[in-house]
Design a protein around this nucleic acid. Sequence first.
DNA 1: GTCTATAGCCTGATAGAC
DNA 2: GTCTATCAGGCTATAGAC
Lengths: 203, 203
Amino acid sequence: MPPSRRPSRIQTRNRAAILDAALDVFSAHGFRGATVDQIAKAANLSKPNLLYYFPSKEDIHNALLEQLLDTWLAPLRALDETGDPLEELLAYVHRKLQMSRDFPRESRLFANEIVQGAPRIHAALSSDLKTLVDTKTDVIRGWMDAGRIARVHPYHLIFSIWSLTQHYADFDVQVRAVLGQEDPFATAPEFIDTLYRKLLSPP
Amino acid sequence: MPPSRRPSRIQTRNRAAILDAALDVFSAHGFRGATVDQIAKAANLSKPNLLYYFPSKEDIHNALLEQLLDTWLAPLRALDETGDPLEELLAYVHRKLQMSRDFPRESRLFANEIVQGAPRIHAALSSDLKTLVDTKTDVIRGWMDAGRIARVHPYHLIFSIWSLTQHYADFDVQVRAVLGQEDPFATAPEFIDTLYRKLLSPP
DNA sequence: GTCTATAGCCTGATAGAC
DNA sequence: GTCTATCAGGCTATAGAC
């Protein structure tokens, strides 16, 4: 990493270009499948030059993962205890679906990591992630106790939202192979909206 | 590959051991992340010995993928047009969930392949998979036209079943990090059952 | 059929000129 | 800060003895 004065414009630009290129390559091939050369080429830098900014391949990957988890959990963090329960949850679902549409590479980077056993972020899952989910499921359980939404297993509810929405990013090729021309994101919101309204509307 | 007489007991056993070991390693690390040495060690063979049975690393991978897609689509194939619509669909969901519980390695092998753009089975997705899904969504659409289940987007319905059920295999570490001690498969069936009953019950 | 040894390639990382 | 050249290690696959 360059000396820790304030970074020059070139440094800022190159670091950003590297991270963007790395996101492309890592999300498409996984950590081991990606090569430093590919990333360098995609960032328009030579390999040694890239390694001047990030000392190792793993450092680039770590930098991506670090900023990822925060971004990734933002939609859940925004779930507001004081709002209308059903509308809050539906808004959460739609935020998450939009992230799959707008940040598919980030979703696939995450998917690659988790499918392979989360070797690099397992700790964060058991701490940050679990803490946040526990907090929010408490809120949801409160809503259920008050009879404001139907009672279902809160954790599975969260899992279902994650899987349903991320599927459109992570399994994009499969979805498009099946759908053909039709844009998945044109019709998915209505389907998912219907699904959660029926599931959660108070009896 | 050994000469194409009938395979000896040793050959049959070794081929099976290799495929099982390879399933372990490929599903945990992806194609590039896996090494022939790891697979050989897991199969209790030397590396050259392994390559006597499968000429190359890619051949092992292909052998796994080939038999996978069939297995993977069996639950959907079994969807019976003449059965009760809601019960047929619920049975499909449960079969799929059981596959996540009983064959998580196969699920992750598939997930690794798709997330990375399905370089090796893209053709099969656009042909075999699409054909099967089109056939079955026709059946489902028929049920909806007859008012026997609620009308939702048939393709997104299928996607939702895939993502919800496979999530428990593919994102296993994350699910367990969040759930702690609780066994996911103890509580998931009821949640998913409720979800699809509410979604699909005729109005 | 199975092994040891090794060829030959690819890849992550470094040296050192500019 | 950026480059060319190159090293060292790990990897797939093969040669050849048994």
